[in-house]
Design a protein around this nucleic acid. Structure first.
Lengths: 112, 112
DNA sequence: TATCATCGTTCACTTGATGAACAGATTCTG
DNA sequence: CAGAATCTGTTCATCAAGTGAACGATGATA
């Protein structure tokens, strides 16, 4: 349920915005509140994120979701991992596009 | 449940191989037998595919899943639709890769 | 103090996918 | 020809995953 993709996205989002509420985070990721809650808990469980003390100095937030050193390391690792994957996807997509183009010219020849 | 993606893939597969069993089709699409059955039924319901008579001349197959004229039309339309979508995905992917690259160089600068 | 907004948490519910099981038809086998 | 074996499409109980309304707790506000 906590896929690589969401581990990556959440770590990325939290690193730049630790004062995000779970609702706001859910909205940004395009997933439900329940799932967001589950994922954050999993990240805390794994020691990648620490739920900081209450933020008394500021106005709004309850928790600060801070990346641990291990979390930062994981985020770097995931970034490399994703770059590699995206490059691969890029190649596949290029082939697919090529194939679709061929198909279209083929069909338009048949139909005149 | 019958997404554009599978409507496209199934029509494409059946056009070149009408004598495919649902099990074989499922394997090629990487989905379950149940889902395949559901999708084919939906395509028949919509008049895009016709389950042909028993194939007496040949050895194996039970049904021939033949594309109707409407089905062929739909397949052409979906092909264009998908080319457009894939080109868009391609752009987005290029941006993502660019972003990941920047991020990596940024991090490597920080860590020395 | 009372009210209101926002927080994280929970969990009953929905949705979607799965594949074992079944009945019918065909093909092999002795 | 009988019976076993192998195909077919169909069904449906079961599972996994996502959803968001509802709840209690907390802090801000009037």
């Amino acid at each position: 349920m906590l896929s690589d993709e969401y581990r990556y996205k959440i770590l990325k989002e939290l690193q730049s915005n630790p004062d995000l509420s779970q609702r706001e985070l859910a909205k940004r990721l395009g997933i439900s509140l329940g799932k967001t809650n589950f994922c954050i808990k999993a990240l805390i469980e794994k020691g990648l994120v620490k739920a900081g003390n209450f933020k008394r100095s500021s106005d709004k937030a309850k928790y600060l979701y801070l990346l641990t050193p291990k979390g930062i390391e994981e985020r770097v690792s995931l970034t490399h991992h994703f770059l590699h994957r995206k490059l691969q996807e890029h190649d596949e997509l290029t082939s697919e596009i090529e194939e679709l183009r061929k198909e279209i010219t083929h069909v338009s020849q048949l139909t005149g």
